[in-house]
Amino acid sequence: MASSNSHAAVAAKNSKFRVLSASLVGTTIEFFDFYIYATAAVLIFPHLFFPASTDPTTATIQSLATFALAFIARPIGAAIFGHLGDRIGRKATLVAALMTMGISTVSIGLLPTYAHIGIAAPLLLALCRLGQGLGL
């Protein structure tokens, strides 16, 4: 009987450690993504996704607006994935949220620039950023 109780205590401790570790990894990836995007939004995206005829300050502000979209989409994503987590299970919902975030992030890296597809480039960037916010 004592062996069974100690085994249950170890399993509970391992479970808490796994949850803590998974939360730490997820939060680290989330904030790393935000820091990388913020840096790119200031240094790179104004030149790639917004017209050259625009004032550099305006292009930077437009780029930072795409950064803000994810913050707007976060509560919406929380409501959607929270509801799905209750309905279909948290594990499947976590996978769906991570896939949404991952696909959106990879898509941003593969987007053509304003010089290639015009106004569709910043619109696609905004769409991908909304996907990141929903998945976050």
Rank of each mutant, 00 (worst) to 15 (best):
C128P: 08
L134P: 01
P112Q: 09
L98R: 05
A97H: 00
L123H: 01
T27W: 11
G133H: 06
V19Q: 09
A41Q: 07
T100C: 14
N5E: 15
Y35L: 11
L125P: 00
S3Q: 14
L24E: 03
I29L: 15
L98K: 03
M99H: 01
A70F: 10
H83W: 13
T60C: 04
L48Q: 12
F71N: 07
K13A: 13
V95L: 12
I88P: 02
L84E: 03
G85S: 10
P112S: 09
Q132M: 15
L125G: 00
A92W: 04
I44L: 13
A120D: 05
L98G: 04
L69Y: 08
M1V: 12
G89K: 07
T54A: 09
Y35S: 12
Y37F: 15
T54K: 00
G118A: 07
G89W: 08
I76T: 06
Y114T: 00
G133C: 09
V10A: 14
F45H: 01
A97I: 08
I44H: 01
F31M: 12
H7D: 15
S15R: 13
A73V: 10
V106C: 08
G77E: 08
I88N: 03
R18N: 13
R90G: 14
L98H: 05
P122N: 02
N14L: 13
G82D: 13
D55H: 06
A65S: 14
P51Q: 10
H47I: 06
H116Q: 14
F34Y: 14
A2K: 13
S23P: 01
T57I: 11
V19R: 07
F50N: 00
S63C: 11
F71L: 05
S21V: 12
G118R: 06
I103R: 04
T39R: 01
P46C: 07
G118Y: 06
T60K: 08
L43Y: 02
N5W: 04
A115E: 13
A59P: 06
G82F: 11
Q62P: 00
F71G: 08
G131D: 10
V25M: 15
L127T: 07
A92Y: 08
T66I: 03
Q62R: 00
A22L: 14
I61T: 04
K91V: 09
V19F: 09
L111C: 07
P75L: 12
G26C: 14
V95Q: 05
D86G: 15
G85M: 10
L64W: 01
A11D: 08
E30R: 10
F67H: 02
K16I: 12
S15Y: 03
R87C: 08
G102H: 05
G26S: 13
F17E: 03
T39M: 13
V95F: 12
A22V: 14
Y114K: 03
G118P: 02
I88T: 09
L125S: 03
A59E: 02
I119Y: 10
I119P: 00
Y114N: 02
I29W: 02
L110E: 11
A65W: 07
P56K: 06
M101W: 13
P122G: 01
R129A: 04
S23G: 14
H7I: 10
P122D: 04
I108G: 00
A59G: 09
H47L: 11
T54D: 11
G85Y: 09
S53Q: 15
